[in-house]
Simulated assay, not measured.
Amino acid sequence: MHATNYSTLDNDFSYQDIDYLMPYPTKLFKNLNSEQKQVFQKLLNKKPGESFDIEKELSGIIMPLKGIFQKKLNYEEILQKINKHYNLQDTTSSVQKMEEQLLLYKFKENYDKLSPEEKKKFQDELNKVLENQNLESSQLASLGTVGALALAELSGMGLYIMASTLVGGLTSLLGITLPFAFYTGMSSFLAFVTGPVGWAIGIGAFAYSVRNESLESISKKFRTTFTASKNLVRGNYELASVIVVQMCAFRIILNQEKNKEIQVLNSKIAKERTRKEQISSKVEMVELQLKRIQEEKNKLDKEINAISSSLKNHELSVSKLKSKLI
């Protein structure tokens, strides 16, 4: 019988290699902390710490009769069905692009339902964030509307703000506090999106029907409404879209945090490389100086040897002359 050499396997695959090969969305849930996982546990009516297969759960949510006697869909197939349900026709993109397409759609759909006063508040808070990023006036003007925000490519600023709004609104509604690593100057924005406007953008029209109730009551009604079996026959696409949007938002936020760490490390790498080059240049100079010193030493050694030989000859001559003295 062939025995597997596990030590060889360990040597062939580093931790980073295995993590890189891990499929999505498994990799996402592996990187979520316990508080972040609570969002999905509550949306899926799971107990704290209870594990689950997200593809199996989503398949059961969107398929008729909760997917009983039906084949489980993979995540790409799930996204294709959800996006098709919302008439988002581009279902041939990558999984990440389909997620982001749904996120943008739900964000805009919920934002459009805000009152003029709420939209103004959101724009005011958004402008504070953009100003704190030291953007030029032309950039600020182009990003000053939510429509343009979707197209922002300033280090993922647009998607990051949308993701933070969607996650902040829902987690606040569920009574979960997440320690976001926000951009500098976004603390007031975080406080804003975890309030009623954030709830409205995060979950849509439902927020308006309960906006005058306590947070505990709202949270309970939200879970009951979105996980109810009223869509048993045709599938609960609203709940599925909330879950997928949250997955996408968490991916964007986590990637932004990782990219910030990468940026810091790349900055350190650049500085250390510069320092290394400076030291290497000094080493070359020192080596050149040492070479010159060695050459000078060799030259002096030759002179010393020549003088020593001459001295010896002179001393020998003196000795011979002394021996001839009368």
Rank of each mutant, 00 (worst) to 15 (best):
M1C: 04
H2M: 09
S7Y: 04
Y20G: 03
P25G: 05
L28G: 04
F29T: 02
K37T: 04
V39G: 04
L43R: 00
L43E: 03
G49N: 02
I54Y: 02
E55F: 00
E57L: 01
I61A: 03
P64F: 10
L73A: 02
Y75I: 07
Y75N: 10
Y75L: 10
N83C: 14
N83K: 13
K84D: 08
L88A: 09
T92H: 05
V95A: 02
E100G: 01
Q101V: 11
K106L: 09
N110L: 06
S115E: 12
P116Q: 14
E118A: 13
K119V: 14
K128S: 10
L130D: 10
L130C: 08
Q133I: 07
N134K: 14
N134R: 10
N134A: 09
G147T: 03
A152T: 06
L159N: 11
T165R: 07
L166F: 13
S172I: 12
M186R: 06
F189Q: 05
A191N: 13
P196K: 09
V197W: 01
G198V: 13
G202E: 06
A205W: 03
V210G: 06
E213P: 01
S214R: 06
A228N: 15
L232S: 04
V242S: 05
V245P: 00
K271P: 01
R273T: 14
R273K: 15
S280Q: 15
S280W: 06
M285R: 10
L290D: 08
K291E: 13
K291G: 15
S310T: 09
S310R: 07
S317H: 08
S317I: 10
L325A: 07
